[in-house]
Write a protein that binds this DNA or RNA. Structure first.
Lengths: 155, 155
DNA sequence: TTTTTTGTAATCACTACTGTTATAACAATT
DNA sequence: AATTGTTATAACAGTAGTGATTACAAAAAA
């Protein structure tokens, strides 16, 4: 008689990651830096090569920066120029430009809680005040850094 | 002879929204508040009714809070208790518990930029320092609010 | 043993992100 | 006027996170 002993060990690791802020933001900063340094070269293809992505991705972001009044892009001839001095463009300006939402809320709060419960009845208002503050200090930190300051560090 | 004049007007509005921080965070705060107020009632179903979601959603979040050492959940009998006093649990603790990543980075930076370009070569390091600061001030603001302070406002 | 609850896998529908191809519109050059 | 290089934008695919849901195993008390 033979005894078969089968031992199965399963190790399951589940890593749940929160969605992060899109790379559009860092790509936009990269793009604006290039425009500030050498506006003439800045076609979508040139920027795409520096960023290492597809030109369409750059053009999409350029469209947002244009809509936000940060750059002027010239169709046909190519190239782009800053519409504000680089010491007057902050990371917050760029952040807002590429996130492009009316209510730019970093945190989401679950909705329709049960109003029969004191916690459910109050949580939205109470939490929102706190989270708005937290978002605000983050944004104020972004507002303290200008494109100009970044460019200094690229030399 | 007939002249057909066809005019097509298309108005396209594209709203791009950045991904926000998941409602797991606010649901977790809601859950902990309930546990602090009435630990005995706090079965997954009870909490789910207050939050207005499916009990499985709550059990998943409870699992994260348990893993973070914030609560003790008892299978079978039901109910949960806080493992720390409510004045020693901050919003940052909850935020970290439900985001559950090693490198809990709020911002993403595009990778593999072109190192032949001075901007591409330096952007990651330069931007990362700024964004780490911005994330940090936000988290420090979360750290200033305790569960206890919130509960006070629910009464 | 029965009942209640937790733990967790699996699936679904939805949405956002990023890359890609394709094509139209634009502007300068020839 | 035609050509060339560029921007603008639509469309689609693939990947990934979210949140709801069903299903079932495991745990603990009655």
């Amino acid at each position: 008689m033979t005894l078969y002993l089968v031992v199965t060990i399963m190790v399951t690791t589940v890593v749940i990651q929160v969605k992060q802020i899109s790379t559009r933001f860092s790509i936009a900063v990269h793009t604006l830096s290039l425009i500030a340094v050498s506006p003439k070269d800045c076609t979508g293809d040139f920027i795409a090569r520096s960023v290492n992505t597809n030109p369409v991705v750059i053009r999409r972001i350029m469209g947002m920066l244009k809509k936000a009044g940060l750059v002027d892009v010239r169709p046909g001839v190519g190239g782009a120029t800053l519409l504000k001095d680089s010491d007057r463009i902050t990371l917050l300006d760029v952040y807002r430009a590429v996130n492009a939402t009316e209510e730019n809320q970093l945190f989401r709060i679950h909705d329709n809680p049960n109003f029969d419960c004191p916690v459910g009845r109050n949580i939205e208002q109470v939490l929102q005040a706190e989270l708005r503050d937290a978002q605000s200090v983050m944004e104020q930190r972004l507002a303290q850094t200008t494109l100009d300051q970044l460019i200094e560090k690229f030399k």
